[in-house]
């Protein structure tokens, strides 16, 4: 079992109405401890893909097997147990802004709690200590008792990551985690996610608009276009032709590709694509 892939998706399909298909026949597998980015234009189905994996959105077709369990067909109770091991990070952080950082982080444990303990917000001493440790690791120790609506965007997202990590996840789904952040904060958030993959062995599936970040941080890049998986490869394999294919813009000059000069390539492509 352990040797198998962490996540196996077969022929996943989702349509919101009979006319528009958000996802069509997406098949992919994720091993443990890999940093995988998903790129593609707005509306290509990136968010839908992520939300199908933890069933915040119910897919119409295909199967999703997470850690040996079929997510697509399971009932509410089982689903809640699977969701404990799949964390999620959001573009708009989705924190409870009237609560403090530490309270938000502890809410990552709610899936493990009985209803009574969850309702009353009763956490064990061990959970509290771990929450403080994680906040400290993310450089937020001094903000533990700060209400989260007073934090900056980058700090809010780090609280989001702390909440995700306290879940003991096997998989982190990050939906545009840096789309609302400045470059410095973006860099920091990506580094924290990379750290989670490298030291904690968590698999990260990250939706990104920024191709340069995807190339810099990922082990593997997936690309969606109109609901189809059109690219699955290493950052090295993602050349200018592939990028222009994905975003549907004209092919950039070939000289940018030669010699594997990535800085050059990115600038060229980003200038054309306007994705930066």
């Amino acid at each position: 079992m352990e040797a198998r892939n962490l996540l196996q998706i077969e022929k996943l399909g989702k349509d919101y109405s009979s006319k528009s298909k958000a996802l069509t026949d997406v098949t992919l597998s994720l091993p443990r401890g890999q940093f995988v980015s998903v790129i593609g234009s707005s509306g290509a189905g990136k968010s839908t893909l992520l939300r199908c994996i933890n069933r915040l959105i119910d897919p119409n077709a295909g199967s999703i097997v997470f850690d040996g369990k079929d997510v697509a067909g399971m009932g509410r109770r089982e689903l809640r147990q699977v969701r404990r091991r799949i964390s999620m990070i959001f573009q708009h952080y989705n924190l409870v802004y009237r609560s403090t950082s530490i309270e938000n982080v502890l809410q990552g444990r709610l899936g493990y709690k009985s209803t009574i303990a969850g309702v009353l917000g009763l956490y064990s001493e061990e959970e509290k200590e771990r929450a403080f440790t994680i906040l400290d690791q993310l450089g937020l120790a001094e903000f533990a008792y700060t209400r989260t609506d007073q934090l900056s965007g980058g700090q809010k997202q780090r609280v989001g990551i702390a909440r995700a990590l306290l879940q003991d996840p096997l998989l982190i789904l990050a939906d545009e985690p840096i789309a609302s952040l400045d470059p410095k904060a973006s860099q920091m958030i990506m580094e924290h996610l990379r750290w989670a993959v490298d030291t904690l062995g968590i698999t990260c599936l990250v939706n990104l608009h920024q191709v340069d970040y995807a190339i810099e941080f990922s082990d593997r890049i997936l690309a969606l276009k109109k609901g189809h998986l059109v690219f699955d490869g290493t950052p090295d394999e993602l050349d200018a032709r592939a990028i222009s294919d994905i975003y549907g813009t004209p092919y950039v000059e070939e000289r940018a590709v030669r010699g594997g000069l990535f800085e050059n390539l990115e600038e060229e492509v980003l200038a054309t694509v306007g994705a930066a």
Binding site: L79, M88, Y93, Y97, G111, G160
Partner: peptide
Amino acid sequence: GSVEALRATGAGFAP
């Protein structure tokens, strides 16, 4: 937003 986040952690309706 926060409801979506907590739902994703596996929390039930009452919590």
